[in-house]
Computed example of a mutant assay.
Amino acid sequence: MLPSASSSSAAGVLPPLPENRVVLGCGGLGLDYLATVSAFPKPDAKIRSTNLMVQGGGNAGNALTCAARLGLTSRLISKVADDALGRSLLAELEADGVDTSHIVVSKEGNSPFTYIIVDDQTKTRTCIHTPGNPTMVPEDLSRPSLLSALDGAQLVYSDVRFHETALVIAKEAARMKIPILLDSERKREGLDDLLNLADYVVCSAKFPQAWTEASSIPSALVNMLLRLPNIKFVIVTLGEDGCIMLERSINEGPESEETDVDNLLESLKQGVDHDSVLPTCISSKSVMQLSAAGIGTVSGMLLVGTAEKIPPDELIDTTGAGDAFIGAILYAICAGMSPEKMLPFAAQVAGAGCRALGARMGLPQRTDPRLAPFLH
Rank of each mutant, 00 (worst) to 15 (best):
L147T: 06
I310N: 03
E257T: 14
N20M: 09
L76K: 13
M361E: 11
G294A: 09
A198P: 11
V80D: 07
A68L: 00
P229Y: 04
V118I: 10
V156S: 10
V37C: 11
A173I: 04
F325Y: 10
L31A: 12
V22P: 08
L72E: 01
A293S: 13
D199H: 15
D32Y: 14
G327H: 03
V137T: 11
P15S: 08
V222I: 04
L181H: 08
K177I: 03
L228E: 12
A91C: 00
T165Q: 01
G56R: 06
M53G: 01
A210Q: 09
T122Q: 00
A328L: 04
T130K: 08
L141C: 07
V168G: 04
G320E: 01
V234D: 14
E139P: 00
A67S: 07
L146G: 02
P339C: 00
I244C: 07
L268S: 03
S299M: 13
A10Y: 02
L357N: 07
R48C: 08
G271C: 01
A39F: 02
D119I: 05
P134Q: 14
C354Q: 08
L90G: 05
A328Y: 00
A210W: 03
S111T: 15
G305N: 11
I178Y: 01
L371A: 04
P112T: 00
S276E: 14
V234H: 12
D317A: 00
Q289A: 13
N223H: 15
I178R: 02
R248E: 05
M224C: 06
V298I: 14
Q209Y: 05
P373C: 00
P279C: 14
P311G: 11
D82I: 00
I117S: 13
D241E: 10
P208L: 12
I235N: 13
L150A: 05
S142M: 11
L182M: 10
I178L: 04
K46M: 07
N251C: 10
D323I: 05
L24C: 14
E139D: 11
S219G: 10
G362A: 01
I244K: 10
A67P: 00
M176Y: 00
V201I: 15
I235H: 15
I326W: 02
K206I: 10
D44H: 15
C354D: 05
D32I: 12
M361I: 10
S256P: 06
V272Y: 01
A11C: 08
